[in-house]
């Protein structure tokens, strides 16, 4: 990888900071149970930019940010700087409220790092056939890409592929494992 142990730790730390900042932005309006702008699908789609402006600036610890040079995000896995995977219901590819809230945060992070290109991988659980799962995985990845584009992420930065059931994140033939495997995963292309 060419990244030293210390640098990696710093990057991870920075990623955590970015994640904390992102979380602070999205939940800043109040409790997570409130119907705030980020969990309302319509509002998230139409006015994500407004939402960012109306929330108060988060208190961000400044020292570590200034102490390190700008990391090369394009060399990192998206999860390392806070881009989170999106999960789906069985045999579904539509985005629920939780998925849309996650994507709103992902979109903000991606907009902040315009140099980063990500590969959106569609995955399914093991149930069903190999080929249909590959098609279903692609639908999930495309649903995620399209939603990110609607939130202002350039389509040219989002590559899409599907692995179907081929590369599970969790092994096991139970709902716990299956739920983890029905996802759109962000990877470095």
């Amino acid at each position: 990888m060419g990244i030293g142990q210390n640098t990696r730790k710093m990057l991870t730390l920075l990623g955590m900071v970015a994640l904390v900042a992102a979380l602070a932005l999205t939940t800043g309006c109040g409790g997570s149970d409130d119907a705030d702008v980020e969990t309302d699908p319509e509002a998230a789609m139409d006015g994500a930019g407004d939402a960012v402006e109306t929330v108060p600036e988060p208190v961000t610890p400044e020292e570590p940010v200034e102490a390190v040079p700008a990391p090369d995000y394009s060399a990192m896995q998206p999860a390392e700087f806070g881009v989170e995977d999106i999960f789906f219901a069985f045999d579904q590819y539509d985005l629920d409220d939780i998925a849309m809230a996650s994507l709103a945060r992902d979109a903000r992070i991606l907009r902040e790092h315009p140099e980063v290109i990500v590969l959106v991988e569609g995955h399914t659980d093991e149930r069903g056939t190999v080929e249909y799962n590959l098609a279903l995985g692609e639908r999930r990845a495309l649903a995620v890409r399209d939603y990110l584009v609607s939130l202002g992420v350039s389509t040219s930065r989002l590559r899409v592929t599907s692995y179907g059931e081929s590369r599970p994140f969790a092994l096991g033939s139970n709902e716990t494992a299956w739920a983890k495997n029905r996802r759109a995963h962000f990877a470095r292309p």
């Binding site: 080929e131 590959l134 098609a135 692609e138 899409v160 592929t161 599907s162």
Partner: peptide, 9 residues
């Protein structure tokens, strides 16, 4: 052939 997306089946 390698087109964008699935090249399958």
């Amino acid at each position: 052939i390698q087109q964008d997306g699935l090249n399958l089946g």
